[in-house]
Amino acid sequence: MATRPSWRGHIKLSLVTCPVALYNAISPAGDVHFHLINPDTKHRVKSVVIDAATDEILERKDLLKGFEFAKGKYVTLTKEEIDAVRLESTKTIDIDKFVPAGDIDRLYWDNPYFLVPDGKLAAEPFAVIRAAMEESGQVALGRLVMSQRERLVALEPRGKGIIATTLRSHDEVRDMKDFFGEIPAVRTDKEMVEVAGKIMSQKHAKFDPTTFEDRYEDALRDLIKRKRKGQNVIETDEPESEESNVIDLMEALQASLKKKKSAAKTAKTKAAPKKRAAASGAKRTSRKTARK
C-alpha cells in the first residue's frame, strides 16, 4: 500500500482473531499547508521550546508531560510511566456488541478508517468476520487505543473490507439543550411551510461529493500560482451587499420560488435551439444519405 497504517493489531469476535491494519480514509493531500518563513532571509523558522519562567531553551526529548491539578502545580509523568499504562484493547479491537446504525446519533461519528487484513494468512478469518457482520445488518462496536487514547469504534462491512469509524465519547458532545433551549417556540404559517417545501423540492438532488469544490483552497492555489509568476498584486472583490431585515417572509419565499422557476425556464429556452439544430442536422444527413 502507498501509505503507512495508522494502527496495527487484531480484530476479535469471540474466539476468532485476525491480524488487521487500519488506514486513514481521509487524505490531507488536497489541503494547502504553509510554513512560517523569516521575511528577511526567506528561510523556514523552527519552533523553540522555552522555559516559561527562566527563558531557558530546552530540548523536546528532555521534557516531561504534566497534569495541572491546581494553579501552577503539576503531576509530571515520564514516557515510560505513560507507556506502562496498558489496556487490553491496546492492540486488539474486541467486538463486544452489535447495534442498529440508526441508533448512533450523527453527533458521535468522528473519523473514518479503512480496516484490512494484515497479511495473506489473515484473509480467511477476516472474510469470516466481515461476512458475519454483513449478515447481522448491524454496526459492530469495539474499542481500540490510538495515540495513547482509547476510542470507541464502529465497524461496518464495505466492499471487501470494513469501514472503522471512531466515535466521540459522551463527554465530548455538548448537550444541545444548552444551545437550543433558548430558541423561542414559533407557530409556523402552513402556507409559508408549503412554499418553503416547494423551494426545497426544486433543489432536490442526489449526493455527489465530486461536485463540491473548496473555493477558498482553490483561491489560495491561484494566489500561489500568480505569486510564482511574479504577480504581487492582490485583487479583492467588493463584498456583496447582504439584504437584511426581511419585512415580509411570505414575499421572500414567493420571490425565491419565482426566481428558481425563471432560472429553469431560461435554461430550457437556451437548450431548445441546440436540440432544434441537432434535429435539423440529423434531417439534412438523412436526406444526403437518401440521395446517395
Rank of each mutant, 00 (worst) to 15 (best):
E80V: 11
G72S: 10
A70G: 03
R168V: 07
H170R: 11
D175H: 12
R174S: 08
M133H: 07
V85P: 00
G102M: 11
P117W: 09
V75R: 06
A84M: 09
D83S: 13
L107F: 13
D110K: 02
A185T: 13
K61S: 13
T188A: 13
D189K: 09
D55P: 02
P157I: 07
Y113E: 01
D103C: 04
D175N: 15
T188V: 13
E88C: 00
K190N: 04
D94M: 12
D55F: 13
F126D: 02
L107V: 10
D105M: 10
V99I: 15
A70L: 10
H170D: 05
R130D: 01
A154S: 09
V139W: 02
D55G: 04
T76E: 03
K97N: 04
S147L: 14
T166P: 04
P112N: 02
A140S: 12
R60A: 12
M192R: 09
I104W: 09
L141P: 05
D105G: 07
R86H: 08
T78C: 07
E134F: 10
D103W: 02
E80K: 15
G137R: 12
R86K: 15
D171A: 14
G181Y: 07
D118P: 04
K160V: 07
L107P: 01
E124A: 14
L64Q: 06
L121K: 14
E56L: 09
A101I: 15
A70P: 03
D189T: 08
K97F: 06
P112E: 01
D103G: 04
D171S: 12
V153D: 00
L64K: 12
L167T: 00
D118W: 03
K71V: 08
F67R: 03
R106T: 07
